[in-house]
Amino acid sequence: MKILVCISHVPDTTSKINFCDNNKSFDSDGIQFIINPNDEFGLIRAIWFKEKTGATVDVINVGLNNTEQTLRKALAIGADKAIRINTIPKCSKVVAKSISKYLESNQYDLIIAGRESIDYNGGMVPGMISALSKINFVDKCTSLEITNDNVKAVREIEGGVENISTSLPLIISSQKGLVEEKDLRIPNMRGIMMARKKELIVIEDYGFKISSETVKFEKPLTKNKVTLIPSNNIDKLIELLNKEAKVI
């Protein structure tokens, strides 16, 4: 089985969010970047298949060379080969079209992409790839079992789950549940050394036109101060929730 995991390079979850370039771009000054957490759950599941069934795991990113450190981290955790498409990921469609273009000449049985990235929160790329490359798709996947060509997947829905039976080739969007938090891996020294020798292929920009464009970013206004209520005056809280906030 050949697996491709799409990796988004995102600011660490504790990052201060600021903008530059006339509020048109994220200010990455002093920011630590990580593998997008939803992608990481998918990557770890892919590596599980590698270790249990001998699958191969490639990782792909659409981005400039600053994302290579994140791809190297994926290699250090256990991916076999990395691909970077040298394109500014200006909108989800450009990312999806680039990955689909790559798929025209490279065959995979399973493609995994995070449910959404924690920076732009688009949640669009996996569905777009599925439609562009005409590959069957299961969104918001919280469990994935594969025996031969037979796939059992679980999809999260409001208030529950859907159990799905399907087949390869398949694209899923990954999130927590696919593997447990404790299964996540920190690259060890040996992994990091090996990652340096693994192949990282750079593909030049395919030149796709953007579909939507950021006009500007703004930060939410700072909040009013909290109203503290003494713990022996619950009636006051109920009155405020009823009369002021009007939520009960």
Partner: peptide, 23 residues
């Protein structure tokens, strides 16, 4: 923004040649 609607969004943005904006 339900699970099913978001599931459709990415697919439809390709089928309809549409710009897709979420949230």
């Amino acid at each position: 923004s339900s699970s099913n609607s978001r599931y459709l969004g990415g697919i439809l943005s390709v089928k309809l040649n549409a710009s897709y904006i979420s949230n």
